[in-house]
Design a protein around this nucleic acid. Structure first.
Lengths: 325, 325
DNA sequence: TTGTAAGCGTTATCAG
DNA sequence: CTGATAACGCTTACAA
């Protein structure tokens, strides 16, 4: 920057101002500066800037998993909003383990991120302490948290699962099976919603209809195999996981189980895939991209000390009825 | 840090050393420092550290798209390697546009990332200039670059597509259609490979069999509709895109086109999906997670000024023959 | 092995 | 609107 200042015949301070607050510098000087910057190929040192001003423009994002397409949508939503606003995005995964999350939060706080988006609502006491001490805005976004740290943008896993269960009940299904995922707090909430839905429908819980399977297509395959052996009376299967339902459908095709006649299938996430398979799968549409966008927006508002907004935004969901139910 | 130093009764320098090079501090002092750190809840300021030492521990990653599951795999591979090594990951997307990439590179260079992984091999002159000026290690990874900037870890889109075309030829298919993606340099390379394969097979190029479709399942649907109207003589369809092939298969199911009897389908990427659909789809298995891991590894080697490694690593591919061909 | 002093490149502050 | 000066919190280099 010193070189630029000399080249333009002004002080370093003027260069700094011309770059950060152009409106505070007289037109002619500003032009001389920008020309010198270009001539010398000067690249601002953001590290020094952040350090000096004690405020960085890097947002941290912690996702349960980096290779899950449903999180990619949120990631993109966040990035789409952040980048035009001049912010950078740092990512890491927590594997849905609060201890892992704690380590990442520690690293991000050390990195002095200016804000944090957490796709998780369970945190260790240490994480909460660090976040409080760091005093940076935080937006949670995997579920509607019971005790939000700061702000939250999400849908309610409980409400969505309950609504789908009621929907299946309204369609006449009574032996509704539920396939959940192990060690996944959001899937656990969905299971709670499913159980609440059954209660509203006056259907007694049948433990044989509640399963836990691994994630991915293979989990869906497993679910169908389990049902055909242990619970052939099931008339519908509600899958808590993204691609479980598709895996289940593919296995039904192989077993010649007609969907929805032999078994109806409903899914929790409306991936593109759901509307292209045969038959198309009934699912819950969640505004995952929008959640990311809004979370980023909220974070930026928070950085400007805008306390006006509602602390928790529930973006809801939509049941998309298709041929599989 | 001053507070920690006072609390532990040592100099700030000793604290710094105890944290960065524990082996260079006597046991008892080291313990006093770590205890003070814990007692005061001190979090190291990585910004100041990076700024002062003029070397950050943040790696930049630029992907064509953030919401594509095939890139997620690479992203995860990178993250899995970087995080245990104590590095952070900053991500952004380029939309396969070299101009966009240039903007992101500029931002990342300003941020003083210690290395860069680019999932792209076409760059603007300005990007190259910046990268050279910044003198940071760069690993390219979307294809085998003709003129690598620094290092590269990838497979060859050309080789893979050619091999699959030859494979289809060997199976007896002669009217092999190819579905490519618009504005995607990697798909363009794959098309070149397809054409080279045809030549080796002594099959004359039939322009009616070469299509360009939008990405996603819908593109596959479109490909089948196009073929049934304009090129019903096609006996195989080789899809250049990740989910195109699945979309095509689903449309075949709806049209009652038997796969592979009426039309064989081959895919470029071996997503999990490919082995679960009916029939399972023949595809090219690319070590996407491994590419990420190796790219990160190479980057870290480069930072230690390790010039020993081979500049370009071709991780190859594997043809997975399944029921669809 | 530990401590001292200087400086990294920028912005905040205040004076002109 | 512009410029001089002093931080910012850490590490490097050197001295003890």
């Amino acid at each position: 920057m010193r070189e630029v200042a000399e080249h333009a015949g002004v002080s370093r301070m003027t260069v700094s101002r011309a770059l950060a607050h152009p409106e505070k510098v007289r037109e002619d000087l500003r032009r001389r500066v920008t020309e010198s910057v270009k001539a010398l190929g000067y690249v601002n040192n953001n590290l020094a800037r952040s350090f000096s001003s004690n405020r960085s423009d890097v947002v941290g994002l912690i996702l349960p998993s980096l290779e899950n397409s449903i999180f990619s949508q949120t990631l993109k939503g966040i990035s789409d909003f952040l980048r035009p606003a001049g912010y950078q995005l740092m990512v890491a995964q927590s594997g849905d383990d609060p201890e892992d999350e704690e380590r990442v939060v520690a690293a991000f706080v050390a990195q002095r991120v200016c804000g944090l988006i957490l796709h998780q609502t369970d945190h260790t006491p240490n994480t909460l302490r660090m976040l409080k001490a760091a005093a940076i805005p935080v937006v949670e976004t995997g579920d509607i948290p019971r005790h939000p740290i700061d702000r939250a943008v999400s849908y309610s896993n409980f409400d969505a699962a309950k609504a789908m269960t009621l929907h299946l009940g309204r369609l006449g299904y009574r032996k509704i099976a539920f396939a959940s995922l192990k060690r996944n707090p959001r899937a656990a909430e969905r299971k709670r919603g499913y159980l609440a839905g059954l209660q509203d429908l006056d259907i007694k819980v049948d433990q044989r209809l509640i399963l836990e399977v691994p994630r991915g297509f293979a989990g869906g395959t497993e679910a169908i195999r389990y049902l055909s052996q242990n619970a052939p009376h099931a008339d519908a299967l509600f899958c808590a996981g993204d691609v479980l339902a598709a895996g289940a459908l593919f296995e039904c095709q192989r077993c010649n189980w007609a969907v929805p006649e032999r078994l109806a299938i409903a899914s929790f996430d409306d991936l593109d895939l759901m509307q292209h398979v045969n038959p198309a799968i009934t699912s819950l549409r969640l505004a995952r991209h929008e959640i990311g966008r809004r979370a980023a927006e909220m974070l930026l508002d928070r950085m400007d000390d805008d306390d006006s907004a509602i602390p928790v935004i529930d973006l809801g969901f939509e049941i998309v009825q298709r041929a599989s139910t």
